[in-house]
């Protein structure tokens, strides 16, 4: 969890890809993101029915599953990524993938070098066992706050968690690329931050350098997912992905 904390000492730059998307070079993609400036890697476990995801990540999960990706293979990938980078690793998963034997899974995740876990369809009310087991072994549990989440609930979601950050999904709907951020986003991020006991990273639809800089003037971190996943869908090389990451995460010093 120390790695997550370190990533947030300046501004956290969080990059998502679905594990196994791109086949054997999936691992190179994650390293490319780290080299391109991401200090937290969000590694997605593919699921056949990803209801929280938009079409870009749905397709990535489908490609990944077609490549034969399993939970075990995702953990193997994490071990490899961990051996090459000190970027924090967050595992993003649906609950059906892990509920069978939660204690064992969390131990395996910890041993694979994972720093935190985000279970997208496990809301706070269903999470007491996950929080307890993860706290015990030093894994962070990441919760998402949505545009529909009340400020009182934001307090609740960010309390009781030993470490990590609050993932603020700043748009309605599912994951996916959007062209712009809402005009009130600054105010809303301020509100979320004021009510969160944890650092706040903002994501959902972030797809250009201006958006990143606008978010990072207020938020503690910024999350980019579908934008990178789209690039992989277009068969980008790992080097090109690294450049793409470097460009989008570039801090605008003029601001």
């Amino acid at each position: 969890m120390q790695r997550i904390k370190e990533a947030f000492t300046n501004k956290a730059k969080i990059a998502y890809l679905t594990a196994g998307d791109g086949g054997d070079i999936s691992y190179n993609y994650f390293l490319a993101l780290a080299k391109g400036g991401a200090n937290i890697l969000e590694i997605g476990v593919p699921f056949s029915d990803p209801i929280a995801d938009g079409v870009v990540i749905q397709k990535a999960m489908k490609r990944s599953l077609a490549n034969g990706t399993t939970l075990i293979k995702v953990l193997e990938l994490c071990i490899k990524v961990r051996s090459q980078t000190e970027a924090a690793i967050i595992l993003f998963t649906y609950y059906n993938q892990i509920h069978n034997n939660l204690p064992k899974f969390l131990n395996d995740a910890k041993n694979a070098g994972i720093d935190g876990i985000l279970v997208i369809d496990l809301p706070y009310e269903e999470s007491s066992q996950l929080i307890f087991l993860a706290n015990k072994i030093g894994l962070a549990v990441i919760f998402v706050a949505a545009v529909s989440t009340s400020l009182a609930r934001i307090k609740q979601l960010s309390n009781n968690i030993a470490n990590g950050f609050l993932y603020y999904a700043c748009q309605k709907g599912t994951t996916g690329v959007r062209d712009e951020l809402s005009v009130e986003i600054e105010n809303r991020i301020q509100e979320v931050k004021a009510n969160s006991f944890l650092p706040v990273a903002v994501g959902f639809g972030v797809s250009n350098n201006d958006m990143v800089n606008r978010i990072l003037t207020i938020a503690d971190g910024c999350i980019i997912g579908s934008y990178f996943v789209n690039a992989i869908a277009n068969n980008i090389s790992a080097n090109e992905l690294q450049n793409l990451a470097a460009n989008i995460f570039k801090e605008n010093k003029n601001k």
């Binding site: 809301p123 269903e126 609930r153």
Partner: peptide, 10 residues
């Protein structure tokens, strides 16, 4: 139960 993304809780 209610195994849904946070957005749908409200």
């Amino acid at each position: 139960g209610q195994y849904v993304p946070e957005l749908l809780i409200k």
